[in-house]
Design a protein around this nucleic acid. Structure first.
Lengths: 210, 210
DNA sequence: CAAAGTTAATCAATCGATTGATTAATTAAC
DNA sequence: GTTAATTAATCAATCGATTGATTAACTTTG
């Protein structure tokens, strides 16, 4: 009972922090606000995570662990490279669309040059690992003659960049796409399938031999 | 002399602030550091720009004014839609590659939900204007039968997203592309033409009727 | 089982440091 | 000599972090 409450409270703080960090940025989110939003005493933040940076680390690690697997599994499937690539892209879009705050945090973390935070290294390694999976699928497709000999790394950057751009700048993207992406319903039901369809078409014409 | 010194000093502060804001983010860059890096007294910041937010606004407005024109000029040229699109993309990549700090600021500004800063609205309107130019060129190409009937807004988001991703996360991008993008020489001589060539190829296969 | 001992969780209060901003006094310019 | 530019000093507010005290829960002992 008490044990469960403790865990729930700590976990709850991490969940809330993901949203607050995502909305306000690392420096913009004060420890007081983080604690207040989670309904816990300020001191608990340091008691649980040692520091504000420790809390950010917890946020990032939690979500990254939840996301491990998936990419590897698809990569090892016995399917055509196109099928594998398509599945990976669909999965990536789904994930980003359902954990938007987290991906804002990720991109801000690798964008800002915060002096020597270990979180940054951790994030870069994680994302790089993800890009590598996609890269290898495309390279395999090229070697097998299934794909055109494109610039693989750029193609990967394009996939990640497109998704990132639309999700992390939702006010701008709302204007561009003429739909309210701040509304989760719209994001899930309208924008997500549209983005998936676009990437599918785009990659198909770009990669597949005609 | 004094008039000139004053202007130079003010202008210098804006230039330095662009770099510091770009490196550390808005909240991460303190007014003291901003003033110190520019070699001026901190009070001058408020004297010149009224507030920290005013300085950010000055940074953004200055660069945006420098960037006005260019897109419009190309859009009004008497050329094929493909030629116009190609030129716009080349120009965009060039600009982003030569003002990397600024584009970090732009994207962070539209990514973070800072409560009601007028700078945010300004930035969104500016970027949206840029995307509209590209969008109209593509739409014209489709209407003329020069391009395939693709998802125009998504195509535009893909162009901007790809460039943004590579420039704003240069540590990650350096790993992906296996080149040191923190080195301006490499960025200009290796990465920039490679990105331009990729976008050209990608858009060509995606848009042009075969 | 019950009293004593032990640990983890939580709190209000406060720490020194830093934040953005402002003041009053001084200097430079025309 | 008056206006504009610049400075050091200082402001209240807030920052992240820590303190000592208190509570709750579990363990040990007899």
């Amino acid at each position: 009972m008490a044990e469960k409450d403790k865990i729930d409270k700590k976990e709850h703080l991490v969940e809330v922090a993901e949203r607050v960090f995502g909305e306000l940025g690392y420096e913009g989110a004060s420890t007081r606000l983080l604690a207040q939003e989670a309904g816990v005493n300020m001191a608990m933040l340091n008691y649980y995570f040692g520091s504000k940076d420790g809390l950010l680390k917890a946020v990032v690690e939690r979500r990254i662990l939840l996301m491990r697997k998936g990419f590897e599994e698809i990569a090892q499937k016995d399917a055509s490279c196109w099928e594998k690539l398509d599945q990976v892209v669909q999965l990536y879009v789904s994930r980003v669309a359902t954990s938007k705050y987290f991906h804002k945090i990720l991109f801000r973390e690798i964008s800002v040059m915060r002096t020597g935070s270990e979180v940054t290294e951790f994030v870069i390694d994680h994302i790089y690992g993800n890009t590598l999976h996609v890269q290898q699928i495309i390279e395999e497709g090229i070697k097998k003659g299934e794909f055109r000999a494109v610039d693989v790394e750029m193609t990967v950057a394009s996939i990640f960049g497109t998704v990132n751009y639309l999700i992390n700048s939702r006010r701008l993207a709302s204007k561009m796409l003429k739909m309210d992406l701040l509304d989760d319903q719209v994001l899930q039901n309208d924008m997500k399938p549209r983005l998936q369809a676009y990437l599918q078409d785009s990659l198909k014409t770009h990669l597949l031999i005609k």
